[in-house]
Nucleic acid binder design. Structure first.
Length: 260
DNA sequence: AACATCCACAACCGCACCTTA
DNA sequence: GTAAGGTGCGGTTGTGGATGT
């Protein structure tokens, strides 16, 4: 009778699903299993690998952490710019946004948005989806980012032609009200009277990829060499540059105050 | 030193969609 | 047609380290 109970207890413990942080052992089991059997079939993987995890948990761990080519660490200014741009088109479609950032996961981008952008919106006492805040991002923040990227690209020896080429390569159809001003000559940051017309990065159109590609930073990104992105890794100090400095916050608050 | 609070990130959950039998 | 299982996505929560008091 007691033996029976022990057996039941053991089988129950086998069925217990483990939660929480993954251990190195679990990681190596998962890596080995995927290396042998490939990705997919996560539920059967979870059963036959001996991992006491759900298939979903295995999949998430693999895609967000263990998968080769996952880029981890600070989001670069260029990536921040692209996230802001794409989010203005696609909203919280993190997976779609992540597709445009090599090696970044939807989870990472989502976390970035919540911990940085939403937080700043709160500090500015406006909703992250309010027109006020979105306009501030579009007409103030993003140009400022462009300026920082431009400054850093020259100070770090990244050839200006990397950015300039985006103009020479650009499809003529992309030339719009968003053109040379945004690419390399943002208006003076002391000029808080920036208007929608002078900085029509995006427009209020639909969320199609095509519209996102035209006349936007998206198109700029398409021409950035991935090696350029690597050059902005935190090791050279650039990746640590924070967009949300006191100076920038003051600047943005001024702009918002002017709008009211 | 101890405790509280904040912050960033990893992981979980619920739902919707897709595939297959 | 439909039920069941698998997968992907977005929202939310949990956790550990950093920082402040």
């Amino acid at each position: 009778m007691e033996t029976m109970n022990v057996q039941v207890m053991r089988s129950l413990s086998d069925m217990v699903i483990k939660k929480g942080p993954w251990t190195e052992e679990e990681d190596s089991v998962l890596i080995n299993y995927v290396n042998v059997h490939g990705e997919g079939h996560w539920n059967s993987l979870a059963r036959s690998s001996g991992l006491k995890r759900t298939g979903k948990s295995c999949r998430l761990r693999w895609f967000n952490y263990l998968r080769p080519n996952v880029r981890r660490g600070n989001i670069t200014l260029q990536e921040q710019l692209l996230i802001l741009e794409l989010h203005s088109h696609w909203g919280n479609r993190w997976a779609k946004i992540a597709e445009q950032l090599p090696g970044r996961t939807d989870n990472e981008i989502k976390n970035y948005w919540r911990t940085r952008v939403v937080k700043q919106a709160k500090q500015l006492k406006c909703h992250v989806n309010s027109k006020q805040f979105r306009d501030a991002l579009r007409f103030v923040w993003m140009p400022r980012l462009m300026e920082q990227i431009q400054a850093s690209s020259s100070s770090y020896g990244l050839d200006q032609t990397t950015l300039c080429n985006t103009q020479t390569h650009r499809d003529n159809s992309m030339v719009s009200s968003y053109s040379s001003e945004v690419d390399l000559q943002p208006p003076s940051l002391s000029d808080t009277s920036i208007t929608s017309s002078s900085y029509n990065l995006i427009g209020d159109g639909g969320l199609s990829t095509e519209s996102a590609e035209k006349g936007s930073i998206y198109s700029l990104w398409q021409h950035w060499d991935y090696s350029d992105i690597q050059a902005f890794e935190p090791c050279n100090g650039f990746g640590d540059a924070d967009l949300w400095t006191d100076e920038n916050m003051w600047f943005l608050q001024q702009h918002l105050a002017d709008e009211l």
